[in-house]
């Protein structure tokens, strides 16, 4: 642990960037499975359940799960350490500040990060801890048959209007975080090129819109129906 703290600021940023990009890619995989909650094919529930079964029972995925949790943990811990160091670097604040032109979402990364962390905790209580048997499955119009029955858990949660609205709000915040995160990760890794950086920035912005939109469509579908 002490060694982790003693890494240089740049090394911490590299690790943050790699972990962050890994988490961003995971979001795409997560969305790919989640979209089968919607009636996009005739047997969408079946496909969703097969995917859930694969994700909860495959031994390779079990290893991946540990890597994923590691990614979250590293990203969160280093994010906090770097933020605390940043606060300490300016013990006396300005009377007037924040008038310099900056990339907008970059100023609120710690704030969006805290909200996403709260979302993560709620997400764990509603799904992962249910799977492990620590918490009760969400109740609602559908009966949850077992602690792996994520389809009915999702239906129950998104049938609750306040939950669906809260979920949409939190996903939008995640989009704000991603908007700065992706191009920032490339900059931290030193991958800057006058020709390709504008492309990376564009892809990052598109990713931060498309992925949250994909997640938002699902509760929206339940809200409308």
């Amino acid at each position: 642990m002490a060694k982790l703290l003693h890494y240089s600021s740049l090394t911490k940023k590299f690790i943050m960037a790699i972990a962050g990009l890994f988490l961003a890619v995971f979001l795409m995989v997560h969305l790919g499975i989640n979209l089968f909650i919607l009636p996009i094919t005739e047997n969408h529930v079946e496909i969703f359940e097969i995917a859930v079964h694969f994700m909860t029972s495959n031994p390779l995925i079990k290893v991946f799960e540990i890597v994923l949790f590691g990614g979250f943990l590293i990203h969160i811990i280093y994010g906090l350490i770097l933020q605390i160091q940043n606060w300490m670097a300016r013990p006396k604040r300005y009377k007037i500040e924040g008038f310099s032109h900056t990339s907008f979402f970059s100023k609120y990364m710690i704030h969006t990060a805290i909200i996403i962390f709260i979302f993560l905790v709620i997400h764990f209580i509603n799904f992962y801890f249910v799977k492990l048997g620590f918490t009760e499955a969400p109740q609602g119009p559908n009966e949850v048959t077992n602690n792996h029955d994520f389809y009915n858990m999702v239906v129950n949660l998104f049938s609750t209007t306040w939950y669906a609205i809260m979920y949409i709000g939190l996903i939008i915040i995640l989009g704000f975080h991603l908007n700065h995160a992706i191009q920032s990760a490339f900059q931290s890794l030193g991958l800057y090129h006058s020709k390709y950086t504008p492309f990376i920035k564009m892809v990052g912005t598109l990713y931060s819109i498309i992925i949250p939109l994909g997640f938002i469509i699902i509760p929206l579908y339940f809200l409308i129906n």
Partner: peptide, 10 residues
Amino acid sequence: GFGNCTNTYA
């Protein structure tokens, strides 16, 4: 004791 870069580009 300088802070870390968070790529705000200010």
